[in-house]
Amino acid sequence: MMPVTPTQTWQFRSPKQHLLRWVGWFWLIALTVFCWNLMTENTIWAFVADAPRQASDIGGRMLPPRWGYLNQLWKPLWDTLNIATLGTLIGVIIAIPVAFLAAGNTTPSRHFVRPLALLIIVTSRSINSLIWALLLVAIIGPGLLAGIIAIGLRSVGFIAKLLYEAIEEIDESQVEAIRATGASNVQVIDYAIIPQILPAFCGISVFRWDINIRESTILGLVGAGGLGLQLQSSLSTLAWNQVTVIFLVILATVIVSEWVSARVRQAVL
């Protein structure tokens, strides 16, 4: 180390930061390489090398799409929409109280209720809706209900998290003003908090609905109804030309739902 005199202190910080940065990058690269080696330990490279041939083979089977199959997809498509919509509804209904319990400025108890509400949010958010569906199919049997509840349970965390952040960001002076009129807690929520978070709430719900449409298209893979069920059966019979049709239907649905959600959010905000 070089001796550091007071006048030089500032100058010496820069190379030190530089060093720190390079060490950081070095570790990132080393870790990535290590992970890569660990991950590909059991990879059979012959399969990977074979991939272009496989791809062209599958591509060949996928085209031309079997358009006649489309007629069998309307009912599953309807089911998929219902899973997403009803699931979002359930999610919203549960998420609202959870969000109010989790927000620092509306929670009845910071030390007991709030952590509990945050735990619900984290649990719901960490577990993908497909895993929820997997569990629910095992528990209550295959069908739409499992899908709806799965979507609902996954949505709770998402909606509640964004909503409680919105609640924490409200303008407190409006709350104070309503409180000063002698309003009760319920009235404060009704008059001072809800008007402020309503646009955010609508935006979040529609946004989640849009995501749920995407997610509900594949829930059928584990038996929770909808388009995924058709996908599963087409895949298991290697009917790739039907898979193409399903993919296109999913793509169209996703595009339409994204358009709808963008329009609604625009109208609300």
Partner: peptide
């Protein structure tokens, strides 16, 4: 939408 969800309640109960 709700009527299109046919639920096997006995299965749910079992679950």
């Amino acid at each position: 939408a709700i009527s299109s969800v046919d639920v096997d309640w006995s299965r749910v109960y079992e679950g």
